[in-house]
Amino acid sequence: MTSSTFSRDELAAAFDQFEATVDRAAQTRDWDPWVDQYTPDVTYVEHAAGTMRGREQVRPWIWQTMESFPGSYMTSFPSLWTVIDEATGRIICELDNPLRDPGDGTVISATNISILTYAGDGLWRRQEDIYNPLRFVKATVKWCRKAAELGTLPPEADAWMKQYGGNK
């Protein structure tokens, strides 16, 4: 067990800043500030993509993920709940990943659990995202079907459906 030297207030403030930066990245579609919140030697564990070490491994992955469908249709990543673990300097949270409105106000999303380990000075040294990829596929298929029904299915989503969505 790693002992933390960070107070609850510092961890909470750092996580508030993390969320604000991620929200700004989602609004501007500029993912570099998100990545810049990690230490240069960050370990990022993403169970579907693998373990990345260092910002310069994380950066192209985030850009590719967030700029291709379905990531490009995710509008925000708000935490639904948060646990501050002072003893380890960690924030454990459930993040929502809503997709943009398909045209009728429907909200379709999937969630993941993230564990962030703080390094100090507003930087995070580790993040692990835990989720069931099939839940994200199911949400994306649901979104595509709704958009198709409404006549708003964009070409990139149609191509994704043909590749991953099946005929069901």
Rank of each mutant, 00 (worst) to 15 (best):
W63H: 13
K168S: 10
Q64S: 14
I62W: 08
T106F: 03
S114L: 09
T28I: 01
P33Y: 06
E67L: 13
T28C: 03
G151Q: 06
P98D: 08
T75P: 01
L80S: 09
P154I: 10
C144Y: 02
L80W: 02
T43C: 02
V58I: 12
A13H: 07
P154A: 07
G120Q: 10
W63K: 12
G166D: 07
W31L: 09
A87F: 02
T39K: 03
K162C: 02
T65A: 11
E46Y: 10
W143N: 04
I113L: 14
I108P: 03
R135T: 13
I115M: 06
R29P: 01
Q27H: 13
P102H: 03
V58L: 15
W81N: 14
D104E: 11
P40Q: 12
A110S: 15
D96S: 15
V42P: 05
I92L: 13
F136V: 10
E94N: 12
F6E: 00
C93H: 05
H47R: 14
W160V: 00
P60G: 07
A157S: 10
S7G: 12
T39S: 14
R90N: 12
A139D: 09
P133R: 06
R145G: 10
E94F: 03
V107P: 00
Y38P: 00
T111N: 11
Q163P: 00
M74Y: 01
T28P: 00
L134E: 14
Y118Q: 10
S7M: 02
N132Y: 07
E156N: 14
P78Q: 06
G105E: 09
A12R: 14
A119R: 04
M52L: 15
E46Q: 13
F136E: 04
P78H: 09
E56P: 00
T5I: 07
T140H: 08
D96W: 04
S109L: 05
